[in-house]
């Protein structure tokens, strides 16, 4: 297979999004507000991890340097990670986590729906399977946004705060760059800018129904796709990677 560094980078972006968010959601296991939610969070974390593994493995193959999913997950530094800032944000309280889920799942669903048409068989395949999973993730986030936004005074306050916390990171999800645009022109990738209208419509409707206010916040500078992250990613990766790095060249 000829090396395709651009395609590898693209797969890594999508894979890193899924991996980092899976890691964040895993932090909720045994800490959720109801046992039923421990099960739900674990389900979503598992789905995302599955997507990450397929995408990272594929990125490694296409890159052609012999790197496995674990090589990529455990032995890259944070300047080499390509995920959005949205997914590396701290969990905060349950409302903030749901806010992040609403924002990101809605984006991810739009993205996978479009990616099903990719001329790349592997990416189209991942997208086809992921659409079913992420439809469920978005629905979970929607149901909770409604219940927290339109629940008690306290839950509305927290849900609004959660939306405010994640809103500055929304724009970054819909930014594109020459790498992505070239791949999109070849029918391999999705131009993220095209996903914004669908996202706005869906999320706008949910916020309205949940009696929440669409924030008017400044946009954060972003840079995740280029390996420029928030300070949080370093800590997340430290925890995730330290054991594997302590025992290099080991099998588990």
């Amino acid at each position: 297979m000829t090396e395709q560094p651009a395609l590898a980078s693209y797969a890594l972006r999508l894979g890193d999004d899924a991996l980092i968010l899976s890691q964040r959601l895993s932090e909720w296991i045994s800490r959720a507000p109801q046992l039923e939610e421990d099960v739900a969070m674990a389900n979503i974390a598992l789905d995302l991890l599955g997507q990450a593994r397929t995408l990272l493995t594929y990125a490694g193959e296409v890159e052609g340097m012999g790197r496995s999913e674990d090589d990529l997950a455990y032995f890259r530094d944070d300047r080499q990670y390509r995920n959005l800032h949205m997914v590396e944000l701290e969990n905060g309280d349950f409302a903030q986590t749901i806010a992040r889920q609403l924002a990101f799942s809605s984006y991810q669903l739009e993205m996978y729906l479009a990616l099903r048409r990719s001329r790349d068989e592997t990416l189209a395949g991942v997208a086809g399977k992921a659409v079913k999973e992420v439809t469920y993730h978005r629905d979970h986030a929607t149901q909770w946004t409604l219940r927290l936004g339109d629940g008690t005074e306290e839950s509305r306050r927290r849900m609004q705060a959660g939306i405010e916390r994640v809103w500055p990171y929304v724009d970054e999800m819909f930014r594109s760059d020459p790498l992505e645009q070239a791949l999109a022109a070849d029918g391999l990738a999705v131009d993220a800018r095209e996903l914004r209208p669908g996202w706005d419509e869906y999320v706008g409707a949910v916020l309205r129904q949940a009696t929440l206010t669409r924030p008017q916040t400044r946009t954060a500078p972003g840079g995740g796709r280029q390996g420029l992250h928030t300070e949080q990613l370093g800590y997340l990766l430290g925890e995730m990677q330290y054991l594997a790095r302590s025992h290099p060249y080991s099998r588990w």
């Binding site: 990450a52 999913e69 925890e239």
Partner: peptide
């Protein structure tokens, strides 16, 4: 969060989920 391979991480999430 510290599992040393992605496969082990997936197995462990599934196991703990089962326990719930």
């Amino acid at each position: 969060t510290r599992a040393p391979s992605l496969r082990r991480k997936a197995i462990l999430i599934a196991k703990v989920q089962d326990e719930a």
